[in-house]
Amino acid sequence: MLTKKNILNPKNWISSHADYLYNYTITRVNNHDLAKDLVQETFLAGLKAMENFQGKSSERTWLISILKRKIIDYYRKINSAKGKAEVRMNFYTDGENEGDWIEERAPSDWSSEIDKSIENDELSIVLDKCIDHLPEKYAMVFRMKTIQQFETEDICKELEITSSNLWVIIHRARTQLRKCMEENWFKK
């Protein structure tokens, strides 16, 4: 059987694939410099691994598979990074009140002019700030699920997490964002 063997041509990598890889990355990490670095690292890793390329997949598919590893490595790194932006607890985690709302984190009533305030363009800016206050891994998973609307299954596969793990993250992100928007936007 005759099959066309794909070849690698690093001289054209930037012009052919840089934008594609960058877009792939920015939808996941949402930070220009970081995305740029990950793409750069992918190209360099590609150069080093050129002899492993068997020509079965296209050049782009092969580069994406390297990039995916880079993104998982990054996710693992932020996942294990301790301290700094700790997620705020919204519920008691032990004792007889376990699972109940912590009083000052519980939802309070919002202004009645909600619809008008949602139409305001500034909302996106405030929301962005709230998302940036989340621990990085929460922000990443939340963005992928809610803003990029990736399928749960795809996110789990990509970041090598379980779906219950994903829902815990989404839940914590959303309860935290609700609180942040309550304080900065919907306050009565």
Binding site: S108, W110, T175, E182, F186
Partner: peptide
């Protein structure tokens, strides 16, 4: 309250 506000939050995310 959370449930009601969650719907509003989803609308915000959709706007964003």
């Amino acid at each position: 309250n959370y449930s009601k506000q969650n719907g509003i939050m989803s609308k915000c995310y959709e706007k964003k």
